[in-house]
Design a protein around this nucleic acid. Structure first.
Lengths: 198, 198
DNA sequence: GTCTATAGCTTGATAGAC
DNA sequence: GTCTATCAAGCTATAGAC
């Protein structure tokens, strides 16, 4: 997990993303960031003149790109979208269990923290969720759904996954993720069956 | 919104709950809490010897009880559970819009912040979500569902609502809540229809 | 029980040598 | 670009008068 690259800027970004995942925005101090990335404070302010906020914006975007890539790969490696979605929920539950319920969405905690207090970061998180939704909607359209139901199901998938992460972390149990996974995958099956029958 | 009771302890709790809603746990300082509740620091530590953590635990429980009461009242005032659930999603979207996307779940932000960093508060948030799930499952059982599907749908309802809050706040749009509301309510309709036909 | 003052530490940010 | 020293302001918590 530790970044060994001799590149302060890169290590600052990955360390920040990792700390946000478990501690959130206000729970992560610059001291902790510079310590775990082994970069001096001056280096942080050289690469990110906007300070913590600017570093946070870039870290969120990088973490989001990585997460989107992983989810897309999981879905695309399945024989069809519906089973890909089913597998992605199972994988989310498995990662939660293996990480003692720490590794969940790299954006959600910060998104809630900044939603009403930091407009710049709120826009960053909004754009990330919009990008994820579009990634999913694209795959559902490729499977035969019209644009409107594809977007609706994509939003429902994402909301269910995020709500599942929240309930599972609070309970230290994967029961909620298992329940929402079944629900969403069944819905996708039904929507695709209906589209095929036309 | 401001509490006018001449009771320091009570005002501390309600002020804390209100601040957590918009700023989260680490984003809320004791200074802000004592200022908005017009209670001195000494009074805080007299009533809550455990400091911020103990005050937070009680504030979360009080806010959760209030929220559960409102949701239960909304659902119970509808002619049946399915339409009650439909109305509750519409009400959540309406409150979001009216509050400029600030008034959402009073627990979620803190729950994510503490999930991997504060075991005592994590247990408090876990118990709250469990209580809400049971409140919903009870109503679904009363409507005719068996215990297992009732619990599954209750968990899905809650996860969808929480995920909807997250996406709506980040986007400053109710699109996600509208989408998940339709999906969950339709699913409840289907489950109840199947139970009735037996 | 109420309240003020303040300790002790950490925070985000800056200045300036190298 | 890198790094250290340091700042002012914030934090949580405590002491002790009333």
């Amino acid at each position: 997990m530790t970044d060994l690259r001799p590149d302060n800027r890169h290590r600052l970004v990955t360390a920040t993303a990792g700390l946000f995942l478990r501690r959130g925005y206000h729970g992560t101090g610059l001291k902790e960031i510079t310590e775990t990335s082994r970069a001096p404070v001056g280096s942080l302010y050289h690469h990110f003149p906007g300070g913590k906020e600017e570093l946070a914006a870039e870290s969120l975007r990088v973490a989001a790109d990585g997460y989107e890539g992983v989810v897309a790969a999981v879905i695309d490696s399945a024989p069809d979208v519906a089973s890909g979605i089913r597998v992605s929920f199972a994988a989310a539950a498995e990662v939660l269990r293996l990480s003692d319920y720490a590794d969940a969405c790299p954006i959600a905690t910060v998104a809630l923290e900044v939603a009403s207090t930091n407009e710049r970061l709120r826009l960053v998180t909004g754009a990330i969720f919009e990008g994820w939704t579009e990634m999913l909607a694209t795959r559902l359209r490729s499977a035969g759904l019209d644009a409107v139901p594809a977007r609706e199901i994509a939003l429902t998938y994402l909301a269910a996954l995020e709500g599942g992460f929240l309930l599972c972390r609070a309970a230290k149990s994967t029961e909620a993720m298992d329940a929402v996974g079944r629900f969403v995958a069944d819905r996708v099956d039904a929507a695709l069956a209906e589209a095929d029958s036309r």
